[in-house]
């Protein structure tokens, strides 16, 4: 984990309120599920973003920025060549296993899964990425299957069965992940979820983003920023 100066390599609109930003920096290692924390002017805390891609050769990382407020507005208005300051790589990412995998992304939650898919493909691990969006203009490309409207979890049990899925990775709003955790428990299928929570320090220090896990019949505290953001869905106390 280090403080980096990054230069905007490209910035483009990819969906309603979402821009894709590619950042050139000295960061030379990161894994899917990890995130970066960006300094935004006049804001009291940094803004965290999942890494959507990492190009080791070109030394670039990609993030998706969805408009939420002043911090994301600043990032969306950056130009190619502009500099930003970020801390990376943060958190613990997905634990990749050689198992037939289903990747489920809800909305902007697709970001870390695109990076994960690339890694799984690289390692010849069979996978299927399904993503869901509220409307046509919100679709972010790159999935094997895209659902528009409704829930990304509709028919998910059938997909698990048909494709003989052994492991699920997911990212999206808590409501979706909580529902998924119930499906995972019911089907006894290991599920890793990347969570999002407002965080102040982004390195496990302030305990501002603590969540509770139920593990070995004990309730334990973990921080989303440092211990996570990836957790076993069946352990999370939603």
């Amino acid at each position: 984990m280090k403080d980096y100066k990054g230069q905007i390599n490209s910035i483009e609109n990819i969906a309603k309120d979402v821009v894709k930003i590619t950042i050139l920096s000295a960061l030379n290692d990161c894994c899917p599920g990890q995130f970066i924390s960006i300094l935004c002017p006049n804001k009291i805390i940094r803004r965290p973003f999942s890494i959507a891609d990492f190009n080791e050769k070109e030394k670039t990382i990609t993030i998706f920025v969805k408009y939420k407020g002043e911090g994301t507005k600043y990032l969306q208005n950056l130009n190619v060549g502009d500099y930003i300051n970020f801390i990376a790589p943060l958190g613990h990412g997905f634990k990749i296993e050689n198992k037939k995998s289903l990747l489920i992304g809800a909305g902007i939650g697709i970001a870390p899964l695109l990076f994960l898919k690339k890694e799984l493909d690289k390692n010849n691990i069979k996978n299927y990425l399904i993503s869901g969006f509220k409307a046509n203009d919100e679709v972010i490309k790159g999935s094997d299957e895209t659902k528009i409207g409704g829930s990304v979890l509709d028919d998910i049990e059938k997909i698990i069965e048909d494709k003989k899925i052994e492991l699920i990775y997911s990212c999206g709003p808590n409501t979706v992940l909580e529902k998924l955790s119930k499906i995972a428990k019911k089907n006894n299928i290991k599920t890793q979820v990347a969570l999002e929570k407002v965080m102040a320090c982004s390195m496990g220090v302030c305990k501002g983003c603590a969540i509770r896990l139920f593990r070995n019949n004990e309730i334990i505290n973990k921080t989303v920023c440092h211990d996570g953001p990836v957790f076993d869905a069946c352990e999370v106390m939603w």
Partner: peptide, 17 residues
């Protein structure tokens, strides 16, 4: 274990924890 629920709230030029 600290408090349950949201622990951080960002406001203009300040942070509530």
């Amino acid at each position: 274990p600290g408090n349950a629920g949201e622990r951080i709230f960002e406001c203009d030029f300040g942070l509530i924890n």
